[in-house]
Design a protein around this nucleic acid. Sequence first.
DNA 1: GCCGTTTTCGGCCCGACTGTTTTCAGTCG
Length: 573
Amino acid sequence: MKNQEIARILERIAEALELKGETGFRVLAYRKAARVLSELTEDVEELNRENRLESIPGIGTGIAKKIQEYLATGKIKKLEEVTKGIDPELFALLNIPGMGPKTIKLLHEQLQVNNLHDLKKVLTDGSAAHLPGMGKKKVSNILKGIEIAEHTGQRMYLNEAFELAENIIRYMEDTDGLKKITFAGSLRRGKETVGDIDILAVAKKPEALVKKFINYKDTQQILSAGATRAAIRVITNYGIRQVDLRIVEENEFGAALQYFTGSKSHNIAIRTMAQKQGLKISEYGVFREEKRIAGKDEVEVYQALGLPYIEPELREDRGEIEAAKEGRLPDLIQIHDIRSDLHLHTNASDGVSRLEEIISACKNIGYSHIAIAEHSISAGYAGGLSEEELMRRCDEIDKINDKLSGFRVLKGAEVDITLNGDLDYSDRALGRLDVVIASIHQGFNREVTKRICQAIEHPLVHIIAHPSGRLIDKRPGYTVDLEKVIECAANFRRILEINAFYERLDLNDIWARKAKEAGVLLAINTDAHGVADLDWMRYGVITARRAWLEKADVINCLTLNQLLKLLREIKQY
DNA sequence: GCCGTTTTCGGCCCGACTGTTTTCAGTCG
């Protein structure tokens, strides 16, 4: 699929236009098209063949033509045109906090700054400070920005982001006069990675709260500290992270929460819609003329626009507003709907906890059943079980189940799909298992689609684990056609996994939604290798919610008997 | 460059903070 490369080109065109001094809406249009394209699951080539490019919202005749040009020739003339004369290294300067297109343009034109090296020079030798609109303070802020850009890690995984947000909120909770405090932003929407933490509060004494905030123990730098707003950089175990605080009045809280939860594109769509109704919406409320008509909570804000409440995870401008208007929003799955975790490792393979510990922890969470799925024989690096060891493990689990009441351990395995698409246990061994999970751990680029589909067609397989194989920001995943995998899973009634490990989240939100739309059931599993990992279920559920999944779409919400019935039916299918 | 429950032209979301300025531009979210 060429969606991502084209999206990157469109984004680059937007940046180049900005650097050339173009402001305004053409830039926005390219940005929007880039975003929409990067989130699209359908192949642009396919859409082009069917002459449907312009049916994509945000893509009109102009950009459609450019996409066609790229598909036909491998390049877009417009890109070459607008980037002509811009040193490629100049684009990198946009990543420095405090440096926007205007400043870069100024420094480039006045002082021939073409890259980071030039930039540092004109900042330190004093020449930049003499330019119009520049000054000592601005120069020192940009220097700090460079330092930050060089030391700030990439975006946070969900585990780090939740931990940081919840730590800061806990720290602030005893501030005198604090009435409400919560996190917003992309973390509240459950995005798979989070750039910074947004915290929203209501306080009797805002100044006291700002003071408390900027004095957080891990504060490394105070970026700003106003009457109602502040921003700090914090050192965590993973790098330097930004945290923003916003303080509002109690009757504005809902409007502010809605606003700071975003996403930006959801908010733009909401505001545009409000405008058409003669309303104005901001973080202070919904207004008709000067009169505030809503704002104290989010329900009220959406209601003022004639919409039902839209869950944060849906707010990505991916059709949720239309669905809300038409009353067909999903009733999203919730964490307490989960009755089981069906992909768990123990110290029998490469896990760290004993089976007894896992059982006890899962009982405490409130699950009624789990499935143990150790690695299979080809996964030697992960302590994969031989067939004999697997059979002994099954005996053990049978014995344990005899002693348990109100809880059941299912016998399973995470079976490797070999290079020729077979499974590495015999049918006799697989036949003894309650649940068979198949997955790719080798040959990431070798006919993966065909091999996964072959596994799906295997009569004893129930679930395909981490179907894309990606590790977020670390590894792109297998060379695999997920569209085909989903189609195949739908045809053979197999289940696809949302692996809840925060570095995987695989299937991701977009593909899981696609799977649901194709009629495929999903499993949310932690793939835990120890008791501590069981909490990852939270990230899996949030991903499922972003995928519009309901309780009925997820097999972890089934009772034990319902699940066993389903697994048997799959075998007979 | 996109788009249409006023429109195929003329709109396109809204506000805080900072640093530079004497009223505002740039950046950020």
